[in-house]
Each structure stands twice: as structure tokens, then as C-alpha cells.
Nucleic acid binder design. Structure first.
Length: 598
DNA sequence: ACTGTCTGCCCC
DNA sequence: ATTCTGC
DNA sequence: GCAGAATGGGCAGACAGT
């Protein structure tokens, strides 16, 4: 397939707001391809390279692409940056620049989809001294051979962000639609018979059936390209032999959120309540010999946590097995867990043995998906029982404490105790629910302090500047704010966070109006900040900000004299406090006290 | 040999 | 991670 | 309510540049 033809079809999808129509358009692309290249096509649609669980990194992103674009077109980087801030997408910038440079070299050759893909594969493999220049050159070559539309999508592929408004779920829809059409063509008699039973809804019914089937396979074999290929090769039979397999990761179940314990119990009834630990999630596979560990995003971390591997080999008695745990750095001397920032240090390539010793991992095992066969369709209570019989706990591998109840005050007490022990919050689980692989369902609900509508953990912070936005936000010229606290002693404002979550279009519109009138060309002298926003503004506006935690920061400078810098974890806008002025900003002293009281 | 910048379907 | 928006 | 797309702090690693 010509890359130009694909690009034109992608543009159709991009313009289309209705997901049903996107599905139809995507299935038309599938109609034009074959079993040889369908996997590559699916990966390109998703803006991903290879199966979800073994994706390839490019090692290039915005800055390198800007260099390439500059080198390919002769336009200087500053100009490109300016355009980027205006348009909010490098792909659009590339498209615009190429289209304004009318004359295209006579020698430019037509791009082929498979060749574009393999160029990126080649680029991904490069490393070492001079490799950034080499990668840049590959991009330059592709851009030089590209039409404006092609350039747009090449750049977006490089960023792994296609901006089509279509992702996994709609691709699965389009596969099921394609599948339905094929089925109709080859089983016309059977189809007519079904039509007698189901009437005009027969197509929707069948498509939904196909979708469910593909989705359930995807959730235990997270490779849409591979699945599409099997479908193209053998039709629905191609999926028959896909089952949960040790060493192929399962899509993790996700938790919903609700604003109070009462509401959760209303929804779930009597629940299993466990602490929510602040480490990272690990999916563990073991066949009696080898152990493989996958993160929440299905990255293979087996080499990185040798102590966890040993723990599993020592404790797990039954296999082949797939189970799930939270891995947290554990301070043996003081018998408590390290904060997340410390556990994060374990995610490394070098000095693994040294840091393993310094920050040993404890595995808190909470679910099981496989033991000599799939368990994901069994209810949680049954899975828990199987899990506890499959391994022997010890100091490095434990089962979480839990209560089984619908008594809200009792859960509240449990919640508060668990918080005081340094956990993030609690998880409430429906004892009868299956393992909802790949889905955020009300089988599990998480509850943290910051979800409560009564949460008073907000700060009133000064807007010090703003950053231009990407995509939808670029039309407002604002993507995030730089906010800070007031240091009374030094009479200055100190940055504590960037704030980009929680901003509605209404917020953005009013901020755009208000901030445009107080722009400063230079950083105001009463500001202290380690990072520079695209635009500084005079001290004037105050915003109310919710957060989960105050952490020591290497980038923000709140309380820099006392602590070297503090920042907010998960900051989000609650409201613009137009009733407050800059004098009413929360002070650095208050922030320090809150930090110490955590 | 050191430092600063950029990157990561990073981890959360 | 949290949050908003169009469907 | 789903699916998608905005956005956060902070860590180690990989290069580029000096």
C-alpha cells in the first residue's frame, strides 16, 4: 500500500467525530490490505510499534523531530518552535511547512507503507555515539520524500501519537465489522436464517458477538496486530487457539473510583477491603524454572528485580502460574515501607545488586489469573483461596491483610489506620466478580483521601505563568499553568507545581482572557522557579489546587531554603479563585507544615 | 571526565 | 496518575 | 459510561557538548 493512500484515509478518520463512522472508515482500510501487511497497518493506526507487551522505543521525540524538520526544510528551530506553540501539534507544523515549500524534488520517490515501517524499525535499533544524528537523518530522508499529508503522519508516527481519535477499542470494532462482512459473504444461507430469528438487528448482533470474542482474546494476548493477522489468515478459527499462556502477559484489571466509602458499599455490597500500597504493580509468571515479571504497562522487568525473582522461586509451590502483586521497597530495620520515590530507584539498569540490597522489595500478592489453566473467570473469593494454597508467605512475600464487610464505619476506621501506616488508600473488591482483564469495571473500586468531596487538602496558589497546549488545548494557547506559594519572609513566590489536570474549556477560556492582559516579557523578580513557562504573568490570579501528597522536589523551588524544594503529587485544578487576590496565596510556611504533618 | 538536555506506549 | 469531553 | 485525549511529579539512562 502506498503511504500516500493510507495518509489520505487516515485524514478521513481524523476529520470524523462519530466513532461508529470511524469504525467503518477503519474497516475500509482493512478491506484494502492483505494478510502480509495487516499487522503493520494496525500498529500504524495505533501509533505503536509491535505488540503492546514488546513494543519498540525510538529514543527520539519532540526535540529531535524538530531538528529533523529544521534540517529537512532549512527553517530554523526557533521558527518551528513558534509554530508548534501556535498549532499544538508537530505533525501539523510539518504539514504546513512542507506545503508552503511548493517545489518537490523530482527525485523524491513514492513512500510505501511497509518501507516507512521498516525505516522506523531501523531507526529504533540505532544506539551509541552519533546515533541521534543518524536517527535524525533517517527522519530527514523520509520528510524529504513526503507530501504534506505524508509528512504529517510520519511525524506523528515518530511521536507515537496519531491523533486520529481512534484507538484499541475502535480498532477492535473495525475488525469485527470486517469480520462480519466476510462472514456474510461466505455464509449467506446461515446469515439469512439468523435474520429470521433476529430481524433487522442481526448485523449489529453479530458484530457485537465478534467484538466480544476479539476483545476477550486481546485481553489475554495483547497484540492487536498479531490478532488481526490471525483473523486474516484463518478467519475466526485463527483465534481459537489463543488462551492464557505463561510468559505472555494478561491485560491487568483496573479499578474504578468513587467519592465515598458509602457509595462504594452501595455499589458493591459486602466487599473485600485491602490496603492500597504505594509501589508498582507486577504481574508474575513462573513455570517452575523461569520467572518473568511485567509492569502495569506490560513492560518486561524480569532482569531488573532479581530479588523478586528469587523470592518467587523460593515461595511459590505450584506452577505454571500467573499471579499479581504490588512490589514496594521495604525498610527491614524500621519494619516499614519506603515512599514511592524511593521504590522508584529500583527501576534501573545498572548497580542492580547494590540497590537491591539497599532497597529490598516486598511483594504483596493479591490476585491470581492462572494455575495450570485460566482462572480469570472464577470469582475472586475462589481465586484468593487458590492463590493462598499456591505459595508460602515469608518476609519478602505476603498476602495483604483484609476485612470482609459492608460496615461503613468499620471500613472508615480501617482506611484511617492503613493511611497512618503510609499506604495510599484502600481497595474494595466484589468477592463474586471475575478477573476483569483489560477493563475498568466496578469489580474493584479504589478509595483515596483526595477523592472525598470533604477533602480540605487544597492550596490556594498563585498563577506565575503558563505553557502553550497541545491538540485541543492549543486553541486556547494554554495547556498548563505554573503555580507557586508565597514566601512571606523573602517576599517572593516559589513554584510548587505545573497544573494541567482539571482545567475545563470554560476555565481555559477565562484564563486566556485574564492572563493575556498581565503578560510579562521577563521573569518577574519576585519569582523563584526552576522551570520557565512559555509566558510569565504578573502576580494577580489565585487558583485552588487539590493534590495527594507533598514531596521533596528536584525541580520546584517551594521552601528551597528549608527543604531544597517541594512539589505536589497529582495536582489538579479545583477552581479559579476570582474572589481571592495575590495576598491570599497559601504561604510557603503553610506548605512546609503540611509537608511535615504527612 | 563532567554536565546538561532529552527521553520514556517510564513508574505512579 | 487525574480529569474533561463527545458520543 | 465508554473511549480517547489532555495534563501532572520524578526517577535512571543515553547522548551531546564541553
Amino acid at each position: 500500500m502506498l503511504f500516500l493512500d493510507l495518509s489520505k484515509m487516515l485524514e478521513e478518520i481524523e476529520k470524523e467525530p462519530s466513532r461508529l463512522k470511524m469504525m467503518t472508515l477503519a474497516s475500509q482500510i482493512l478491506d484494502k490490505t492483505n494478510k502480509k501487511e495487516v499487522d503493520v497497518l494496525i500498529y500504524l493506526l495505533l501509533g505503536q510499534f509491535g505488540a503492546t507487551y514488546k513494543e519498540i522505543d525510538f529514543g527520539i521525540a519532540e526535540k529531535t523531530i524538530i531538528s529533523a524538520l529544521s534540517k529537512a526544510t532549512g527553517i530554523d528551530k526557533e521558527k518551528i518552535n513558534k509554530e508548534l506553540r501556535k498549532l499544538g501539534d508537530l505533525g501539523l507544523v510539518g504539514e504546513q511547512i512542507i506545503s508552503s515549500k511548493v517545489q518537490k524534488s523530482l527525485f523524491s520517490k513514492k513512500l510505501i507503507v511497509a518501507e516507512v515501517y521498516s525505516s522506523f524499525e531501523k531507526l529504533a535499533k540505532m544506539g551509541g555515539k552519533g546515533s541521534i544524528a543518524d536517527k535524525t537523518n533517517i527522519l530527514v530522508q523520509m520528510i524529504n520524500n513526503a507530501n504534506p499529508i505524508e509528512a504529517k503522519y510520519i511525524i506523528r508516527i515518530a511521536q507515537k501519537n496519531m491523533r486520529l481519535g481512534l484507538a484499541n477499542s475502535t480498532i477492535i470494532d473495525s475488525l469485527s465489522l470486517k469480520f462480519l462482512k466476510d462472514y456474510k459473504e461466505s455464509n449467506l444461507e446461515e446469515f439469512e436464517k439468523l435474520k429470521e430469528d433476529y430481524g433487522e438487528d442481526v448485523e449489529r448482533y453479530l458484530r457485537y458477538k465478534f467484538k466480544e470474542k476479539i476483545e476477550s482474546k486481546y485481553n489475554i494476548y495483547p497484540d492487536l496486530g498479531g490478532i488481526a493477522k490471525k483473523l486474516f489468515e484463518k478467519g475466526s478459527n485463527g483465534l481459537r487457539d489463543i488462551g492464557i499462556t505463561p510468559f505472555v502477559p494478561v491485560m491487568p484489571a483496573l479499578a474504578e473510583r468513587l467519592p465515598s466509602i458509602g457509595k462504594i458499599i452501595e455499589k458493591l455490597g459486602k466487599s473485600i477491603v485491602e490496603p492500597k500500597f504505594d509501589g508498582f504493580r507486577l504481574q508474575c509468571h513462573y513455570d517452575g524454572k523461569e520467572v518473568k515479571l511485567f509492569t502495569r504497562n506490560l513492560e518486561d522487568m524480569s532482569e531488573i528485580f532479581p530479588d523478586a525473582v528469587e523470592t518467587i522461586k523460593k515461595s511459590v509451590k505450584k506452577y505454571p502460574i500467573i499471579f499479581e502483586c504490588e512490589a514496594i521497597g521495604y525498610n527491614e530495620k524500621e519494619d516499614k515501607y519506603y515512599p514511592f520515590q524511593v521504590t522508584m530507584k529500583r527501576k534501573r539498569k545498572y548497580d542492580i545488586p547494590g540497590v537491591s540490597k539497599q532497597i529490598p522489595l516486598r511483594l504483596v500478592v493479591f490476585d491470581i489469573m492462572y494455575l495450570k489453566g485460566s482462572l480469570i473467570d472464577k470469582p475472586l473469593l475462589e481465586r484468593k483461596q487458590i492463590l493462598e494454597n499456591a505459595m508460602t508467605p515469608n518476609k519478602n512475600l505476603i498476602f495483604p491483610e483484609n476485612i470482609y464487610t459492608d460496615d461503613v464505619p468499620r471500613i472508615q476506621k480501617f482506611f484511617e489506620r492503613v493511611l497512618s501506616e503510609g499506604n495510599e488508600g484502600i481497595m474494595l473488591k466484589d468477592p463474586n466478580a471475575i478477573y476483569t482483564a483489560g477493563a475498568r469495571k466496578f469489580a474493584w473500586v479504589k478509595y483515596k483521601k483526595s477523592y472525598s468531596s470533604r477533602a480540605k487538602d487544597t492550596l490556594d496558589l498563585l498563577v506565575m505563568g503558563y505553557f502553550s497546549g497541545k491538540g485541543q488545548r492549543s486553541k486556547f494557547g494554554i495547556g498548563a499553568l505554573l503555580v507557586g506559594s508565597y514566601n512571606e519572609k523573602e517576599n517572593r513566590y516559589e513554584s510548587i507545581a505545573k497544573l494541567g489536570s482539571g482545567l475545563t474549556e470554560e476555565n481555559l477560556e477565562s484564563l486566556q482572557k485574564a492572563l493575556s492582559e498581565i503578560k510579562e516579557t521577563e521573569k518577574p523578580k519576585e519569582y523563584v522557579s526552576g522551570i520557565n513557562p512559555h509566558v510569565w504573568v504578573r502576580p494577580k490570579y489565585v487558583v485552588e489546587v487539590l493534590y495527594d501528597e507533598i514531596t521533596k522536589s528536584p525541580t520546584h523551588l517551594c521552601a528551597k531554603d528549608e527543604m531544597g524544594g517541594l512539589a505536589l503529587r497529582f495536582p489538579r485544578l479545583i477552581k479559579i479563585r476570582s474572589d481571592k487576590n495575590k495576598v491570599q496565596t497559601s504561604t510557603t510556611k503553610e506548605v512546609l507544615e503540611l509537608f511535615k504533618s504527612q
